[in-house]
């Protein structure tokens, strides 16, 4: 049984102009100890997926369709109480805006201890002290800084503290939503390495959300490329990054020539803006307008899933054909 099995997930937001679909027909599986990377431009629904796994969609967000199975049990069927016990204990999250994820009026250590205490009421005071010291050790923050306030931390330290917090209840799965966006490249690199180390040491699974392909390529075995709320290509890292088939993936990678110089694409640059208009769900390919290979059919008929290998597929009627 996979650790996480997301099946045909469709999520929408109520807005003034009616419900708007933000994530459509997303399916993926994640095994224990594995890292899955989700890449795609801003607004394509990455955070929305992450939030839905914790049952933390904004008030106006709702799951329209689909199932989320965690260790075989249906997350969407949990009661509020069960959900509270589940959060952080099973799945924790490193939020996109980690800089603001810490409450300014409480000491950082206390905020981490709070999580440990809630999920492990049986822990003694010594045990908790031991845990927090271990966590700080793990993320390389000196012990004497444990009980500082967030504003006394540097950006990188806050980021690491947030990672420590995410690991504090020894979850099975950590979702890292752009964990390094606000940091400079050097610190970014340290943090990524740290996350990889921790993954190896603790054997946790992870979902790594980023629009930075370099980061995802380094940390994840499985990759999912999203465009406008849909998965357009998914597969193993070697498949998606070395032999991409979807025109959008190719375009995305070509704008990231830095990855070890392995990739050499001559495709067009992707459209960066991603304005959601409900009509992209009308059944035609959402990428057709920006696609250099688009044919007449692409504008009239829905795209089709093409299987390149058993683990590698793409949502494009042209892929896997005529080559």
């Amino acid at each position: 049984m996979p650790l996480l099995d997301v099946d045909n997930l469709t999520i929408a937001y109520h807005t003034r102009s009616g419900p708007v679909t933000a994530v459509e027909n997303v399916s993926f599986r994640l095994e224990r100890g594995k890292f899955l990377g989700i890449v795609g431009e801003s607004g394509c629904g990455k955070t929305t997926i992450g939030m839905s796994l914790l049952g933390l969609l904004p008030e106006n967000g709702f799951v329209r369709e689909g199932r989320i199975l965690f260790e075989g049990s249906d997350l969407l069927a949990l009661s509020q109480k069960e959900l509270q016990a589940f959060r952080w204990k099973k799945i924790s999250m490193i939020f996109q805006a980690a800089m603001n994820a810490l409450n300014p009026v409480h000491r950082v250590g206390d905020q981490i201890i709070e999580a440990i205490r809630i999920h492990n009421p049986e822990f003694s005071e010594e045990r908790i002290q031991k845990e927090i010291k271990e966590l700080y050790d793990l993320v390389d923050i000196p012990e004497q800084r444990i009980f500082d306030y967030p504003h006394q931390y540097s950006g990188g330290m806050k980021q690491r503290a947030v990672i420590a917090m995410a690991l504090s209840c020894r979850p099975d799965l950590v979702i890292a939503d752009e964990p390094t966006t606000a940091l400079d490249v050097i610190v970014q690199d340290q943090i990524i390495r740290k996350i990889k180390d921790i993954q190896r040491q603790r054997g946790i699974a992870g979902i790594f959300i980023s629009h930075d392909i370099g980061v995802v390529a380094e940390a994840c075995q499985d990759i999912m490329v999203m465009y406008r709320g849909k998965i357009v290509e998914q597969g193993k890292r070697e498949e998606v990054f070395v032999a991409p088939v979807h025109p959008y993936t190719i375009a995305l990678l070509s704008s990231h020539l830095t990855i070890d110089g392995v990739f050499d694409f001559h495709a067009d640059k992707p459209e960066v803006a991603c304005d959601f208009s409900p009509d992209f769900f009308a059944g035609v390919c959402g990428y057709a307008e920006s696609c250099s290979r688009a044919e007449a059919q692409c504008f009239t008929a829905p795209p089709k899933w093409r299987e390149i290998t058993p683990t590698h597929k793409a949502l494009c009627r042209l892929c896997g054909q005529n080559d």
Partner: peptide, 26 residues
């Protein structure tokens, strides 16, 4: 609306704990 309130919820705190420990003091 602050991010740390989301964090508090994600940690598995009850609504009352989120309200009293994280929202009210601020």
């Amino acid at each position: 609306k602050e991010d740390y309130i989301l964090t508090a919820r994600a940690k598995g705190l009850s609504e009352k704990q989120v309200r009293n420990r994280h929202a009210a003091p601020n």
